[in-house]
């Protein structure tokens, strides 16, 4: 499958719309268009095959399942993996399993874009300071949106469009040569990566007994194969009971 320049730009736009901080879909856009399952499906629509896009996007989504971006840091970029990863995998005819191994390194490049953006935007907030000193709120709002979004659109659409347009051939060659040990290595790494998102989430939870609760969920799933929604209901019940009991204890002391 080949990707024309128009499709390449549209894929870049999907990436831009899912970038954390793009206002057009409200900021939930960043949790929706940014997730490889959704981004992959949208890329599939653009390339004329939403079902394949969805299947590949779903596979790429796994390492990012518990992805967390808190306090202005991103460990990896599910949006770039989901858009560019899906597009290149579809162009090269890769299997979902191979797609995920190739998309994750692509997603790492996205963290550089995020850092670049968070740094350059400092200049705009200083301009907003000047506008505030004039008491001009319209100008403050202007600096919140216009320059920052023009810059963000530029650094997100351009690399993706170019990467997708020129990368398809290279990716096809990489995928054809990928077999045996290198493929196995990538697959193993892909399987371990969800641990990072989960661990970052765990670290954000400052609670003495967090590992114990974590083990409850782990054992429920590993031995009883309870679906995640049911685990969350059980988790909610335990959470209420634990909170009530521990708070009661505090009150009595």
């Amino acid at each position: 499958m080949s990707i024309d320049i128009f499709q390449a730009i549209l894929i870049g736009v999907v990436y831009y719309l899912g970038f954390n901080g793009t206002p057009w879909l409200t900021n939930l856009g960043a949790t929706i268009a940014n997730r490889p399952l959704i981004a992959g499906t949208l890329v599939g629509f653009i390339l004329g095959d939403p079902v394949t896009g969805c299947i590949i996007g779903a596979a790429i989504n796994l390492p990012y399942l518990a992805y967390i971006s808190a306090g202005g840091t991103v460990p990896m970029d599910p949006g770039l993996a989901g858009t560019m990863g899906t597009a290149l995998a579809m162009a090269a005819g890769a299997t979902p399993q191979v797609a995920v191994s190739l998309a994750v390194p692509i997603g790492l490049l996205g963290t550089m874009l995020f850092t670049l953006r968070m740094t350059v935007d400092i200049a705009f907030v200083h301009m907003a300071d000047k506008a505030a000193a004039e008491g001009n709120y319209k100008k403050v709002n202007f600096f919140n949106v216009v320059p920052s979004q023009l810059f963000l659109a530029f650094i997100s659409i351009l690399p993706v469009a170019l990467g997708v347009y020129y990368g398809a051939d290279i990716m096809t060659r990489i995928i054809q040569s990928l077999s045996g040990t290198p493929l196995h290595v990538l697959t193993v790494i892909g399987g371990v990566l969800p641990a990072l998102g989960i661990a970052m989430n765990l670290r954000a939870i400052v609670n003495k007994y967090i590992i114990l609760f974590f083990l409850i969920g782990f054992i429920l799933q590993v031995y009883f194969h309870i679906p995640i929604i049911t685990i969350s209901i059980i988790g909610f019940i335990i959470a209420i009971l634990y909170t009530e009991l521990s708070m009661k204890d505090q009150g009595a002391r």
Binding site: L62, L65, A66, V188, G191, V192, P194, A195, I198, N201, L202, I205, V206, N207, Y209, I210, I211, L212, F213, F214, L215, I216, G217, F218, I219, L220, Q221, V222, I226, I228, I231, S232, I234, G235, F236, I238, A239, I240, Y242, T243, S246, M247
Partner: peptide, 22 residues
Amino acid sequence: MTVAQTMGGIVLGGLTASFVTL
């Protein structure tokens, strides 16, 4: 906060078992 943390911890345990493979 305590409810969120406790429930979050349990869900993350379930996710680890389902999605981290090695």
